[in-house]
Design a protein around this nucleic acid. Structure first.
Lengths: 105, 105
DNA sequence: TTATATATATCGCATACCCAATATATTATA
DNA sequence: TATAATATATTGGGTATGCGATATATATAA
């Protein structure tokens, strides 16, 4: 279990598998482009997902119809939640909240 | 991304990778044995982790010194958080809370 | 224009995660 | 005792996940 591998016993859980959820949640607050998302995740997790992480994830979410990429404006491509994505997020959030009930203060 | 594979667009995120964290959290509330933990996770997630999931996870956590297994009492083996585990959980919780800030109402 | 910086994209890969199947141990019941 | 039920344990394997390296595109600076 890589998630718990630090030797001083102070680190656990890299939250593998939550990236898609996190992206959907972040996009539900405001449309963003890739690097913006990576930055926000870095702020929260303390570790910035690499390009090889963030873009395949975005592609996957787009292919599933959860997010839409607006036309390229300048260097960036802005992603927005679709209705389908909003719905998926709503359901997932419920599950998430029920699963981790009590973890939040 | 298996996590988002349902076709009606209502499902996302199986929270793969959070099992260890969840177990630590549950054990922080009260000592439990394997099946008890599986049951509680089932209640929360709606899906019961199989024996092949829960026991290797427990073993891994024990090997890392995060949990201790009390002597077998009857059929069951009760697991408790160690000091090390409490510490790891505290750190992870902080990270978790900061990462998913705003998801909880 | 050329050079540099930033954003996006893809591909291969190691590995972690979890499950199905199976085995063992203990207890309860007939 | 034999049988069933429950709890624990292990192993092999499928697969998703995320990263490193690399490539491309656009924009800005020199």
């Amino acid at each position: 279990m890589r998630s718990f591998s630090n030797d001083n016993g102070s680190y656990c859980c890299d939250m593998r598998g939550m990236l898609g959820f996190l992206i959907l949640f972040l996009l539900s607050k405001k449309p963003m482009h890739g690097q913006e998302i990576a930055e926000e995740i870095a702020r929260r997790k303390g570790e910035r997902p690499s390009p090889g992480t963030i873009y395949p994830a975005l592609k996957s979410l787009r292919e599933m119809g959860f997010i839409a990429s607006d036309e390229r404006e300048g260097k960036t491509i802005v992603y927005t939640l679709t209705e389908r994505g909003k719905n998926a997020l709503r359901i997932s959030k419920r599950r998430f909240i029920r699963t981790f009930l009590g973890v939040f203060p």
